[in-house]
């Protein structure tokens, strides 16, 4: 495309049209996020520009009211436990799956990923009936386990991708030099897969932190999470406090995304992949 010297005018026209279309699509992608962040600082409870003045009153409401803070606390508590649980389960599974000659690898893998594919309402209703039978309904344990279901596929995917370029001769060398399996894991495998593990864990955290449908079915008001409050709020009336809460969630995503990106670069450097 750079060689304009012999390009026809039609071709040049297409070139600029293509750029224009791409610009519009990228705007469509980021506009909603960029537009609502300033609105959360609006001094009046309306969602139009120009804004008459700036104020932190909606953040004040978000950070000082017991309802929102309780929900934020619940969300963080649940997401942290889900992250730990799903990272442990997912890492073990990914390690097993990435060993050569794993039996029925494709079938097992697609089963482990399926919670991501099955419509979330079906999971929610099925888990709801299941919990009603075994008495886990309206409990933190129940909600954490249900969120772990949805979060582990992210860990498995992130880690199998990291392990794809893993050189198994390293572990064999360590074993050959006399290291017991535990030492091999902590000294050789773990440092190499750590970036993948952390990005998987961050994905798992976000998956739980943003989840609303399963929570609506299996949680009671006691376990109410941030997305649950936002969902019920959005169904009735858009309030600026919800937009402030949304901005806080966006900030969370940005921090996570930056971390994941930095880790990905580090991991590629460690594994010697050049881009």
């Amino acid at each position: 495309m750079a060689a304009f010297a012999y390009a026809s005018p039609l071709e040049k026209g297409w070139y600029y049209l293509h750029r224009l279309i791409c610009g519009a699509v990228l705007l469509y992608l980021v506009a909603p996020i960029l537009v609502i962040i300033p609105l959360s600082f609006n001094s009046v409870p309306f969602f139009t520009y120009p804004m008459p003045g700036l104020s932190l009153r909606w953040y004040e409401e978000f950070f000082l009211s017991a309802g929102w803070q309780g929900a934020l606390h619940n969300s963080l508590f649940i997401a942290v436990l889900v992250t730990l649980l799903s990272t442990a389960l997912g890492t073990l599974a990914a390690l097993g799956l990435s060993r050569p000659n794993f039996p029925w690898r494709a079938a097992v893998m697609s089963l482990l990923i399926s919670p991501m594919i099955v419509p979330v309402v079906i999971t929610a209703v099925a888990v709801y009936f299941f919990y009603a039978d075994i008495g886990l309904l309206n409990s933190y344990t129940g909600l954490i386990l249900a969120h772990t279901l949805g979060a582990t596929p992210f860990v498995v995917i992130a880690l199998t991708a990291t392990l794809m370029g893993f050189d198994h001769s390293l572990t064999r060398a360590a074993a050959g030099l006399g290291a017991p399996p535990i030492t091999v894991f902590f000294k050789i495998i773990l440092p190499l897969i750590l970036p993948g593990m952390v990005s998987g864990a961050l994905f798992a955290f976000l998956a739980s932190f943003d989840e609303v449908v399963v929570a609506l079915f299996v949680a009671s008001p006691e376990q109410r999470t941030l997305p649950m409050i936002m969902f019920s709020g959005l169904r009735e009336q858009y309030s600026p406090t919800i937009i402030a809460a949304a901005t806080v969630l966006i900030l969370f995503s940005i921090v996570m995304l930056t971390t994941v990106e930095l880790l990905r670069r580090r991991s590629e450097r460690l594994r010697g992949i050049r881009r």
Binding site: P32, I33, V35, I36, L206, F209, D210, V212, P227, M230, F231, L234, Y238, I242, I243, A246, L249, I250, S253
Partner: peptide, 9 residues
């Protein structure tokens, strides 16, 4: 970004 946040936006 959370689906809920984007839908709200």
């Amino acid at each position: 970004t959370s689906v809920l946040v984007r839908t709200a936006a």
